[in-house]
């Protein structure tokens, strides 16, 4: 089942065409990787999907519903979870409270002036933390966690509103190589369990080739390749503009 479908997506900044006529789709339970050189338009593409940027033209549909022109917070309410390239969590709160925030918002309970927030949706929050393996750190302030752990907290936040689609912008940036594959393996497991469609950008080819079901390649704002990891890896154009000789990564395919 197709969860996200994108077609003719375009965006220009002051005459520079950042994204041109991009089209792809993601199915439930599928991990789709978006790769390409720095400045190829990946972030622009991403920000048009999550509502940060409005496309100049094109169609973005989530389960048949158009997302164009919607605000990020409304897109979230339709079931789109996000993680950021540079982690964004609430650093003055504990790990559990971070998840509780997402739950409070999901249950439209934020306007209360009286009930202590700390006690609300506690069990649900703990259950989510358990799924990403962070339950034992639930009472620590988010601001002092190790980077890899913050990434897992973000994943739990993203899961709080039972999303149909996860958008992950360079989910493993800044992590150690072994943690990277671990995080994406966890993501893949959760996505398959809950039937969530995942779209992610990534520079670590070991992660991409190990975890992506399908890959699309963007160069200078245009899609230049699409296919399975094996196909993309063998594509001479992709090798020339992006992958290089393959000397800087090892990644074996599935």
């Amino acid at each position: 089942m197709t969860v996200l479908s994108v077609s003719n997506l375009s965006k220009a900044f002051g005459g520079v065409k950042a994204v041109q006529d991009v089209a792809f789709s993601v199915a439930a339970g599928e991990l789709l990787a978006l790769i390409g050189p720095n400045g190829a338009g990946k972030s622009t593409c991403f920000n048009m999907l999550n509502g940060q940027l409005r496309p100049d033209s094109g169609i973005v549909n989530l389960l048949g519903r158009s997302l164009v022109g919607m605000k990020p917070r409304d897109i979230w309410r339709l079931g789109v979870g996000r993680t950021f390239q540079i982690t964004a969590t609430f650093n003055s709160m504990t790990v559990r409270e971070n998840i509780q925030m997402a739950l409070l918002s999901h249950h439209n309970a934020l306007m209360s002036l009286w009930k202590p927030a700390n006690a609300m949706y506690r069990d649900e929050a703990m259950a989510l933390l358990d799924r990403v393996g962070m339950a034992d750190q639930s009472e620590r302030p988010c601001g002092i966690l190790a980077y890899g752990d913050i990434k897992r907290v973000e994943l739990a936040i993203a899961l709080a509103n039972q999303p149909k689609l996860l958008l992950m912008d360079e989910p493993t940036a800044g992590m150690a190589p072994n943690e990277r594959v671990g995080l994406m393996a966890l993501t893949a497991k959760l996505a398959r369990q809950d039937n969530i469609a995942v779209l992610f950008t990534e520079h670590d080819m070991d992660v991409v080739f190990a975890q992506a079901d399908r890959i699309i390649v963007l160069n200078r704002g245009k899609l230049i390749a699409e296919g399975s990891p094996v196909e993309v890896r063998a594509n001479p154009e992709v090798q020339a503009v992006y992958l290089g000789s393959g000397a800087t990564y090892a990644g074996e395919g599935h």
């Binding site: 050189p37 720095n38 520079h203 020339a240 290089g244 000789s245 393959g246 800087t248």
Partner: peptide, 14 residues
Amino acid sequence: PSEGLAPVIVEQMA
């Protein structure tokens, strides 16, 4: 120096 760079650029960096 190689963090967050495309593999081709990483080779150039080397």
